[in-house]
């Protein structure tokens, strides 16, 4: 029994810069079900990031509707949007966006601080669990500039999942990483997917998209292809086959 998590109807985003209207999204209709692992591909400038920002409630559409987990997102007020970002969505960025001069632990704890309901012990338990999930707990008290790119991205993923969101968005999470580290991150993603998380991921690489079970292709602000991948690759197994180029520890 599939349960729809995301339904968008004719989602349009137009950036207006003076006289120029940039039609970043020209009407997106999509349904994403719970437990899906979706890869979005497409040429540069085709509107992938714009679409992800709308899904992640970081931005508002010019027109169209978007419902997330039964909530009609485009009609709610700003303060509730912040709450949705906090509780329902985990966002992983291409360039990590960790707070510098703040330890890995504190970066991961950050979303929990914006929920007053949790006490110190509960926060600590959740933070440590997230760090463990991405296998980075031994670096908990390191600062971002003391971590490798792959480790930083794992911290960012831990931050995205710390509040047990209903789905995870990742905009080119492997874009700044080498092949092996990229596969490592994908192994973490697949593990989360196996635990039941819904994941939407943007990538330029076919090798990365091959780990997802549904592939959506964008062009010029429209979806031009949407196909199932019945036989996704297994990142954990690929990792074993890859030679160790650089020891991170």
């Amino acid at each position: 029994m599939v349960k729809p998590l995301i339904i968008t109807k004719d989602l349009v985003k137009t950036y207006i810069m003076g006289d120029i209207h940039v039609h970043a999204l020209r009407g997106i209709d999509i349904q994403i079900n719970e437990g899906e692992f979706i890869a979005i591909m497409g040429a540069s400038g085709s509107g992938k990031t714009t679409f992800m920002n709308l899904l992640g409630c970081l931005d508002k559409p010019t027109s169209g509707s978007y419902s997330l987990d039964g909530i009609d997102v485009h009609s709610i007020k700003e303060s509730d949007l912040a709450r949705i970002r906090n509780e329902k969505i985990g966002y992983v960025f291409q360039s990590f966006y960790l707070l510098s001069r703040t330890t890995a632990y504190e970066n991961v704890e950050l979303p929990l601080l914006y929920r007053t309901k949790l006490n110190h012990e509960e926060r600590k338990a959740k933070t440590l669990l997230a760090l463990r999930t991405v296998a980075i707990e031994d670096r908990a008290h390191h600062y971002p500039n003391q971590l490798s790119g792959g480790q930083q991205q794992r911290v960012a993923i831990a931050r995205a999942i710390v509040n047990s969101p209903v789905f995870l968005l990742a905009d080119e999470p492997t874009g700044n990483l080498d092949t092996r580290t990229g596969v490592e991150v994908m192994a973490v993603m697949q593990a989360l997917h196996n635990q039941g998380k819904t994941i939407v991921l943007v990538t330029h690489e076919n090798d990365i998209a091959a780990y997802a079970d549904r592939l959506i292709t964008f062009r010029d602000g429209r979806i031009i292809a949407d196909q199932k991948n019945t036989n996704p690759r297994n990142a954990a197994e690929d990792l074993k086959k890859l030679p160790i180029i650089e020891d991170e520890d």
């Binding site: 992640g56 970081l58 700003e78 303060s79 912040a82 709450r83 970002r85 906090n86 509780e87 966002y91 966006y97 960790l98 707070l99 950050l110 979303p111 914006y114 929920r115 931050r159 509040n163």
Partner: peptide, 16 residues
């Protein structure tokens, strides 16, 4: 500014 953006992205409201 970037820090503010990150905080907002993980759920900080205007009030926070």
């Amino acid at each position: 500014i970037k820090e503010i953006g990150i905080r907002m992205a993980v759920g900080a409201g205007k009030r926070d």
